[in-house]
């Protein structure tokens, strides 16, 4: 475990805490894409199939349970909580998620390290995570005034991606058993690039002390 990996996991965790805080205390999910949240739940379910069979470390298992539990409960909040669901911006969150799920699944069937059930689903989860943020970014662009919690949520998610890339570079040079193949690198870099535009406007609004507003 290096500092980049730990910091990446912590910003990922922070992004989820910010989101849960918004739903639990303010009872609002305004500006949050249910489509993206459902995709993340699917990402974790298909990636952590090894949770009961392969033990890496206590840290690893606890984090997996955290990501599974929180992603599923966020979807539950947005769909069924009688107050929270009223603030869901259904009319603007129109991105069709199977447009992302289907190509990712086909790609995972074709390009994978090993053609086994678990390996294909693990690869699928990597491809899907890379693009899962798209419905959220589309919704942000359609939202007039983005509140601070939503902005921070996406910021922490983007920071997590950036830190994971630093982690891979670090591990590549320091860990002789660690040689990632193209799959993780490519999908990881694609995912991080998707945030570049958001980061630009996030930092600009922060420096100007203005509300975050993405151009159409």
């Amino acid at each position: 475990m290096n500092i980049f990996r730990l910091a990446g996991d912590m910003t990922h965790l922070m992004s989820i805490v910010v989101l849960l805080l918004k739903m639990h205390t303010i009872k609002s999910c305004a500006g949050i894409s249910l489509k993206t949240q459902e995709l993340y739940a699917l990402v974790f379910i298909t990636r952590y199939l090894d949770i009961f069979t392969d033990f890496v470390s206590l840290y690893n298992t606890v984090m997996k349970i955290f990501f599974l539990g929180t992603s599923i409960s966020i979807v539950w909040y947005m769909r069924y909580h009688k107050v929270v669901k009223q603030s869901y911006d259904k009319d603007h969150d129109t991105f069709r998620h199977y447009f992302l799920i289907l190509p990712c699944f086909l790609l995972a069937l074709i390009i994978n390290d090993e053609f086994t059930f678990r390996e294909v689903l693990w690869t699928f989860s990597l491809y899907l995570e890379a693009v899962a943020i798209i419905p959220q970014l589309v919704l942000l662009q359609r939202t007039k005034n983005i509140d601070n919690l939503t902005g921070n949520y996406v910021f922490f998610l983007g920071a997590y991606r950036g830190l994971y890339i630093l982690n891979w570079i670090y591990r590549y040079f320091t860990d002789s058993h660690y040689r990632r193949k193209g799959i993780t690198w490519t999908s990881g870099i694609v995912q991080t690039l998707l945030y570049a535009d958001f980061f630009y406007y996030y930092i600009r609004s922060w420096r100007r002390n203005e509300r975050l507003n993405l151009p159409a």
């Binding site: 990996r5 890496v56 997996k64 693990w122 891979w168 058993h177 660690y178 990632r180």
Partner: peptide, 10 residues
């Protein structure tokens, strides 16, 4: 779990 392909990451 082999770390070769990053299965030890989250």
């Amino acid at each position: 779990v082999s770390p070769d392909n990053g299965h030890d990451e989250l």
